[in-house]
């Protein structure tokens, strides 16, 4: 199955174009793009996190969702491989799945410092919803 995100050229950071058939898919695939940068060798496993977030717009919600993943990955020392997302209005519930991060086995990813709001605009298109996401690395 083709990966629902592609990397676009950006000099300083990592720019991903992501799409999904629904906004929930889009958010889930955006998380997948983040996992591909940070945790290319992590698999779904025993490490789980669930959280709920609200924001003023879908773009702000997407930025906060991905930032929340960075937070949990760092404080819980976990590497994730999948995210289940449900969205009701501007409130999101997410469940992350992955494994404890072990530098000896999982090295090779790139640390993401933050999720930039530059150029993030969720648009409705023929294939669903799409946006660019700029990951500061």
């Amino acid at each position: 199955m083709p990966v629902p995100f592609i990397e676009r050229d950006h000099t300083a950071d990592i720019l991903m174009h992501v799409w999904g058939t629904t906004t929930e898919d889009l958010f889930s695939e955006a998380a997948g793009a983040l996992f591909s940068i940070m945790f290319p060798s992590c698999k779904p496993g025993d490490a789980h996190q669930t959280f709920t977030l609200s924001a003023d717009s879908h773009e702000a919600l997407l930025g906060e969702f991905l930032s929340e993943i960075l937070y949990y990955a760092e404080v819980e020392c976990e590497g994730y491989a999948s995210a289940d997302v449900t969205i009701d209005g501007l409130t999101l519930k997410a469940r992350l799945s992955g494994e404890p991060y072990d530098p000896a086995h999982h090295a090779g990813g790139t640390e993401v410092k933050g999720i930039s709001r530059s150029g993030m605009k969720i648009e409705k298109t023929k294939r669903g919803y799409e946006t660019d996401i700029l990951f500061d690395v």
Binding site: T11, A12, D13, S116, R117, S118, G119, L134
Partner: peptide, 8 residues
């Protein structure tokens, strides 16, 4: 060079 917000 191209960053986000201000340029680098």
């Amino acid at each position: 060079h191209w960053g986000y917000g201000f340029p680098i």
